[in-house]
Design a binder for these strands. Sequence first.
DNA 1: TGCGTATATTCCTTGACACGCATATACGCG
DNA 2: CGCGTATATGCGTGTCAAGGAATATACGCA
Lengths: 130, 130
Amino acid sequence: MESVFEIIAEPNRRAILSLLVTSQQSVGQLERRLRMSQPTVSKHLRVLREAGFVESTVDAQRRLYRLKPEPLQEIDAWLAPFRHFWSAHVDALERHLDRMAHINPPAKKIPAAAKTRRGPNRARPKGAAR
Amino acid sequence: MESVFEIIAEPNRRAILSLLVTSQQSVGQLERRLRMSQPTVSKHLRVLREAGFVESTVDAQRRLYRLKPEPLQEIDAWLAPFRHFWSAHVDALERHLDRMAHINPPAKKIPAAAKTRRGPNRARPKGAAR
DNA sequence: TGCGTATATTCCTTGACACGCATATACGCG
DNA sequence: CGCGTATATGCGTGTCAAGGAATATACGCA
Protein backbone atom coordinates (compact mmCIF):
# COMPACT_ATOMS: atom_id res chain seq x y z
CA MET A 1 0.00 0.00 0.00
CA GLU A 2 2.70 2.42 -0.71
CA SER A 3 1.55 4.72 -3.49
CA VAL A 4 -1.16 7.33 -3.43
CA PHE A 5 -2.69 5.58 -6.41
CA GLU A 6 -3.27 2.39 -4.50
CA ILE A 7 -4.86 4.40 -1.73
CA ILE A 8 -7.47 5.97 -3.97
CA ALA A 9 -8.08 2.72 -5.82
CA GLU A 10 -10.52 1.76 -3.06
CA PRO A 11 -14.03 3.10 -3.76
CA ASN A 12 -14.95 3.59 -0.11
CA ARG A 13 -11.85 5.62 0.45
CA ARG A 14 -12.67 7.83 -2.49
CA ALA A 15 -16.14 8.25 -1.05
CA ILE A 16 -14.69 9.33 2.26
CA LEU A 17 -12.45 11.85 0.57
CA SER A 18 -15.39 13.20 -1.40
CA LEU A 19 -17.36 13.69 1.77
CA LEU A 20 -14.51 15.46 3.45
CA VAL A 21 -14.01 17.95 0.67
CA THR A 22 -16.97 19.96 1.89
CA SER A 23 -16.09 20.05 5.56
CA GLN A 24 -14.61 17.96 8.32
CA GLN A 25 -16.61 15.02 9.59
CA SER A 26 -16.60 12.69 12.54
CA VAL A 27 -16.22 8.97 12.12
CA GLY A 28 -19.84 8.46 13.04
CA GLN A 29 -21.04 10.90 10.43
CA LEU A 30 -19.03 9.13 7.76
CA GLU A 31 -20.30 5.79 9.00
CA ARG A 32 -23.90 6.88 8.63
CA ARG A 33 -23.60 8.76 5.36
CA LEU A 34 -21.68 5.96 3.68
CA ARG A 35 -23.61 3.15 5.35
CA MET A 36 -20.54 1.18 6.14
CA SER A 37 -19.60 -0.48 9.40
CA GLN A 38 -17.71 1.56 11.94
CA PRO A 39 -14.60 -0.64 11.93
CA THR A 40 -14.44 -0.41 8.17
CA VAL A 41 -14.58 3.36 8.28
CA SER A 42 -11.91 3.49 10.96
CA LYS A 43 -9.65 1.20 8.99
CA HIS A 44 -9.95 3.26 5.84
CA LEU A 45 -9.37 6.42 7.81
CA ARG A 46 -6.25 4.90 9.23
CA VAL A 47 -4.95 4.16 5.76
CA LEU A 48 -5.82 7.64 4.57
CA ARG A 49 -4.22 9.22 7.59
CA GLU A 50 -0.99 7.28 7.27
CA ALA A 51 -0.83 8.23 3.62
CA GLY A 52 -1.32 11.89 4.47
CA PHE A 53 -4.71 12.32 2.82
CA VAL A 54 -6.42 13.30 6.06
CA GLU A 55 -5.66 14.45 9.55
CA SER A 56 -7.75 14.30 12.66
CA THR A 57 -8.32 16.33 15.77
CA VAL A 58 -9.85 15.11 18.98
CA ASP A 59 -13.15 16.46 20.23
CA ALA A 60 -13.94 14.59 23.43
CA GLN A 61 -14.74 11.06 22.31
CA ARG A 62 -15.12 12.15 18.72
CA ARG A 63 -12.46 12.44 16.14
CA LEU A 64 -12.90 15.00 13.42
CA TYR A 65 -11.24 14.19 10.15
CA ARG A 66 -10.33 16.73 7.53
CA LEU A 67 -8.64 16.68 4.18
CA LYS A 68 -4.99 17.41 3.51
CA PRO A 69 -4.10 18.51 0.00
CA GLU A 70 -0.63 17.14 -0.67
CA PRO A 71 -1.30 13.57 -1.81
CA LEU A 72 -4.08 14.65 -4.12
CA GLN A 73 -1.81 17.27 -5.56
CA GLU A 74 0.67 14.53 -6.21
CA ILE A 75 -1.89 12.75 -8.33
CA ASP A 76 -2.66 15.98 -10.08
CA ALA A 77 1.03 16.40 -10.83
CA TRP A 78 1.22 12.92 -12.29
CA LEU A 79 -1.59 13.80 -14.64
CA ALA A 80 0.14 16.91 -15.95
CA PRO A 81 2.04 15.34 -18.88
CA PHE A 82 -1.12 13.64 -20.02
CA ARG A 83 -3.01 16.89 -20.02
CA HIS A 84 -0.56 18.16 -22.58
CA PHE A 85 -1.23 15.05 -24.58
CA TRP A 86 -4.95 15.37 -24.68
CA SER A 87 -5.03 19.10 -25.24
CA ALA A 88 -2.89 18.50 -28.29
CA HIS A 89 -5.57 16.06 -29.36
CA VAL A 90 -8.33 18.56 -28.92
CA ASP A 91 -6.36 21.12 -30.87
CA ALA A 92 -5.90 18.67 -33.69
CA LEU A 93 -9.61 18.00 -33.69
CA GLU A 94 -10.31 21.70 -33.80
CA ARG A 95 -7.99 22.18 -36.73
CA HIS A 96 -9.72 19.35 -38.45
CA LEU A 97 -13.11 20.86 -37.83
CA ASP A 98 -11.82 24.20 -39.03
CA ARG A 99 -10.73 22.60 -42.25
CA MET A 100 -14.09 20.96 -42.67
CA ALA A 101 -15.77 24.26 -41.98
CA HIS A 102 -13.64 25.89 -44.61
CA ILE A 103 -14.52 23.35 -47.24
CA ASN A 104 -18.15 23.21 -46.25
CA PRO A 105 -19.03 26.28 -44.20
CA PRO A 106 -21.56 25.76 -41.38
CA ALA A 107 -24.88 27.53 -41.31
CA LYS A 108 -24.10 29.33 -38.08
CA LYS A 109 -20.93 31.02 -37.01
CA ILE A 110 -18.95 29.46 -34.18
CA PRO A 111 -18.33 31.97 -31.37
CA ALA A 112 -14.73 33.14 -31.29
CA ALA A 113 -14.48 32.27 -27.60
CA ALA A 114 -13.99 28.63 -28.46
CA LYS A 115 -10.75 29.45 -30.20
CA THR A 116 -9.34 31.72 -27.51
CA ARG A 117 -9.50 29.14 -24.74
CA ARG A 118 -5.99 27.93 -25.08
CA GLY A 119 -3.21 27.00 -22.68
CA PRO A 120 -2.31 24.26 -20.24
CA ASN A 121 -5.81 24.31 -19.02
CA ARG A 122 -7.59 23.05 -21.96
CA ALA A 123 -8.66 19.92 -20.11
CA ARG A 124 -12.31 20.31 -19.55
CA PRO A 125 -14.11 17.47 -17.78
CA LYS A 126 -15.66 16.25 -21.02
CA GLY A 127 -19.15 17.13 -20.05
CA ALA A 128 -20.89 15.04 -22.66
CA ALA A 129 -23.03 12.18 -21.51
CA ARG A 130 -22.46 8.68 -22.73
CA MET B 1 -10.98 -4.28 -12.01
CA GLU B 2 -13.75 -2.00 -12.91
CA SER B 3 -12.68 1.54 -12.14
CA VAL B 4 -10.02 3.61 -13.81
CA PHE B 5 -8.46 4.11 -10.39
CA GLU B 6 -7.79 0.44 -9.94
CA ILE B 7 -6.21 0.36 -13.36
CA ILE B 8 -3.67 3.01 -12.59
CA ALA B 9 -2.99 1.62 -9.14
CA GLU B 10 -0.49 -0.76 -10.71
CA PRO B 11 2.98 0.83 -11.01
CA ASN B 12 3.92 -1.00 -14.20
CA ARG B 13 0.76 0.17 -15.89
CA ARG B 14 1.50 3.74 -14.92
CA ALA B 15 4.97 3.30 -16.34
CA ILE B 16 3.54 2.06 -19.61
CA LEU B 17 1.21 5.03 -19.82
CA SER B 18 4.07 7.40 -19.11
CA LEU B 19 6.09 5.89 -21.92
CA LEU B 20 3.21 6.16 -24.33
CA VAL B 21 2.60 9.83 -23.64
CA THR B 22 5.51 10.75 -25.88
CA SER B 23 4.67 8.54 -28.82
CA GLN B 24 3.29 5.16 -29.70
CA GLN B 25 5.39 2.10 -28.90
CA SER B 26 5.48 -1.54 -29.80
CA VAL B 27 5.20 -4.24 -27.17
CA GLY B 28 8.85 -5.11 -27.61
CA GLN B 29 9.95 -1.53 -27.05
CA LEU B 30 7.95 -1.34 -23.86
CA GLU B 31 9.31 -4.69 -22.77
CA ARG B 32 12.89 -3.51 -23.17
CA ARG B 33 12.49 -0.04 -21.76
CA LEU B 34 10.62 -1.26 -18.70
CA ARG B 35 12.65 -4.46 -18.29
CA MET B 36 9.65 -6.57 -17.69
CA SER B 37 8.78 -9.93 -19.22
CA GLN B 38 6.87 -9.91 -22.46
CA PRO B 39 3.82 -11.73 -21.09
CA THR B 40 3.60 -9.25 -18.27
CA VAL B 41 3.67 -6.33 -20.69
CA SER B 42 1.03 -7.94 -22.86
CA LYS B 43 -1.22 -8.60 -19.91
CA HIS B 44 -1.00 -5.05 -18.67
CA LEU B 45 -1.65 -3.78 -22.16
CA ARG B 46 -4.69 -5.94 -22.32
CA VAL B 47 -6.02 -4.43 -19.12
CA LEU B 48 -5.26 -0.93 -20.33
CA ARG B 49 -6.87 -1.60 -23.68
CA GLU B 50 -10.06 -3.02 -22.20
CA ALA B 51 -10.28 -0.02 -19.91
CA GLY B 52 -9.88 2.34 -22.84
CA PHE B 53 -6.53 3.80 -21.82
CA VAL B 54 -4.80 2.63 -24.99
CA GLU B 55 -5.55 1.36 -28.44
CA SER B 56 -3.41 -0.62 -30.84
CA THR B 57 -2.86 -0.90 -34.54
CA VAL B 58 -1.24 -3.78 -36.31
CA ASP B 59 2.04 -3.38 -38.15
CA ALA B 60 2.92 -6.81 -39.51
CA GLN B 61 3.81 -8.87 -36.46
CA ARG B 62 4.09 -5.79 -34.29
CA ARG B 63 1.39 -4.07 -32.44
CA LEU B 64 1.72 -0.36 -31.89
CA TYR B 65 0.04 0.94 -28.79
CA ARG B 66 -0.97 4.54 -28.27
CA LEU B 67 -2.74 6.50 -25.60
CA LYS B 68 -6.39 7.38 -25.50
CA PRO B 69 -7.37 10.39 -23.40
CA GLU B 70 -10.79 9.61 -22.00
CA PRO B 71 -10.04 7.52 -18.91
CA LEU B 72 -7.32 9.87 -17.78
CA GLN B 73 -9.69 12.76 -18.24
CA GLU B 74 -12.09 10.93 -16.01
CA ILE B 75 -9.50 10.92 -13.26
CA ASP B 76 -8.85 14.57 -13.90
CA ALA B 77 -12.55 15.24 -13.52
CA TRP B 78 -12.65 13.40 -10.22
CA LEU B 79 -9.90 15.64 -8.93
CA ALA B 80 -11.76 18.83 -9.81
CA PRO B 81 -13.62 19.31 -6.50
CA PHE B 82 -10.42 18.79 -4.59
CA ARG B 83 -8.68 21.44 -6.62
CA HIS B 84 -11.24 23.88 -5.31
CA PHE B 85 -10.38 22.69 -1.86
CA TRP B 86 -6.68 23.15 -2.11
CA SER B 87 -6.75 26.42 -3.96
CA ALA B 88 -8.92 27.71 -1.14
CA HIS B 89 -6.14 26.56 1.14
CA VAL B 90 -3.53 28.40 -0.84
CA ASP B 91 -5.69 31.50 -0.78
CA ALA B 92 -6.03 31.26 2.97
CA LEU B 93 -2.30 30.90 3.28
CA GLU B 94 -1.81 33.89 1.05
CA ARG B 95 -4.16 35.98 3.12
CA HIS B 96 -2.30 34.89 6.18
CA LEU B 97 1.02 35.83 4.65
CA ASP B 98 -0.43 39.13 3.55
CA ARG B 99 -1.48 39.83 7.10
CA MET B 100 1.96 38.94 8.33
CA ALA B 101 3.48 41.18 5.69
CA HIS B 102 1.27 43.99 6.78
CA ILE B 103 2.29 43.65 10.40
CA ASN B 104 5.91 43.03 9.59
CA PRO B 105 6.67 44.07 6.00
CA PRO B 106 9.19 41.93 4.10
CA ALA B 107 12.47 43.28 2.78
CA LYS B 108 11.78 42.29 -0.78
CA LYS B 109 8.65 42.48 -2.81
CA ILE B 110 7.16 39.21 -3.98
CA PRO B 111 7.03 39.10 -7.78
CA ALA B 112 3.51 39.27 -9.13
CA ALA B 113 4.01 35.99 -10.97
CA ALA B 114 3.84 34.18 -7.69
CA LYS B 115 0.25 35.20 -7.34
CA THR B 116 -0.80 34.03 -10.77
CA ARG B 117 0.78 30.62 -10.47
CA ARG B 118 -2.24 28.70 -9.46
CA GLY B 119 -1.70 25.10 -10.42
CA PRO B 120 -2.13 24.09 -14.02
CA ASN B 121 -5.84 24.00 -13.54
CA ARG B 122 -7.07 26.49 -11.12
CA ALA B 123 -10.63 25.41 -10.81
CA ARG B 124 -12.71 27.50 -13.09
CA PRO B 125 -16.47 27.99 -13.20
CA LYS B 126 -17.72 24.92 -15.01
CA GLY B 127 -20.02 26.60 -17.46
CA ALA B 128 -17.34 29.00 -18.61
CA ALA B 129 -16.46 29.47 -22.25
CA ARG B 130 -17.98 27.34 -24.85
C1' DT C 1 -16.78 4.31 40.01
C1' DG C 2 -19.61 2.41 36.73
C1' DC C 3 -22.19 3.03 32.37
C1' DG C 4 -22.94 4.58 27.58
C1' DT C 5 -21.05 6.44 23.58
C1' DA C 6 -17.37 6.97 20.07
C1' DT C 7 -13.49 5.14 17.91
C1' DA C 8 -9.52 1.97 17.27
C1' DT C 9 -7.51 -2.54 16.86
C1' DT C 10 -7.08 -7.67 16.35
C1' DC C 11 -8.03 -12.04 14.22
C1' DC C 12 -9.74 -14.62 10.59
C1' DT C 13 -11.45 -15.75 6.10
C1' DT C 14 -12.01 -14.89 1.43
C1' DG C 15 -11.13 -13.19 -2.99
C1' DA C 16 -8.51 -10.68 -6.40
C1' DC C 17 -4.56 -10.02 -9.04
C1' DA C 18 0.38 -9.97 -10.50
C1' DC C 19 3.88 -12.87 -12.00
C1' DG C 20 6.48 -16.91 -13.98
C1' DC C 21 6.42 -20.50 -17.09
C1' DA C 22 4.75 -22.84 -20.86
C1' DT C 23 2.30 -22.68 -24.93
C1' DA C 24 -0.63 -20.84 -28.70
C1' DT C 25 -1.35 -17.69 -32.57
C1' DA C 26 0.06 -14.64 -36.31
C1' DC C 27 3.10 -12.82 -39.70
C1' DG C 28 7.12 -12.45 -43.06
C1' DC C 29 10.66 -14.52 -45.47
C1' DG C 30 13.55 -17.80 -47.78
C1' DC D 1 6.16 -25.24 -46.11
C1' DG D 2 9.17 -24.37 -42.24
C1' DC D 3 11.69 -21.23 -39.38
C1' DG D 4 12.31 -16.94 -36.61
C1' DT D 5 10.25 -13.11 -34.66
C1' DA D 6 6.48 -10.68 -32.23
C1' DT D 7 2.61 -10.91 -29.36
C1' DA D 8 -1.21 -13.15 -26.83
C1' DT D 9 -3.18 -16.48 -23.63
C1' DG D 10 -3.75 -20.32 -20.01
C1' DC D 11 -2.54 -22.27 -15.70
C1' DG D 12 -0.71 -22.58 -11.06
C1' DT D 13 0.95 -20.08 -7.18
C1' DG D 14 1.99 -16.61 -3.70
C1' DT D 15 0.77 -12.27 -1.73
C1' DC D 16 -2.00 -8.95 0.10
C1' DA D 17 -5.84 -6.22 1.14
C1' DA D 18 -10.91 -5.71 2.49
C1' DG D 19 -14.57 -6.85 5.45
C1' DG D 20 -17.01 -9.12 9.47
C1' DA D 21 -17.15 -10.22 14.34
C1' DA D 22 -15.36 -9.56 18.64
C1' DT D 23 -12.84 -6.84 21.67
C1' DA D 24 -10.02 -3.02 23.46
C1' DT D 25 -9.38 1.86 24.55
C1' DA D 26 -10.81 6.59 25.62
C1' DC D 27 -13.91 9.96 27.22
C1' DG D 28 -17.99 12.25 29.63
C1' DC D 29 -21.44 11.99 32.85
C1' DA D 30 -24.40 10.56 36.70
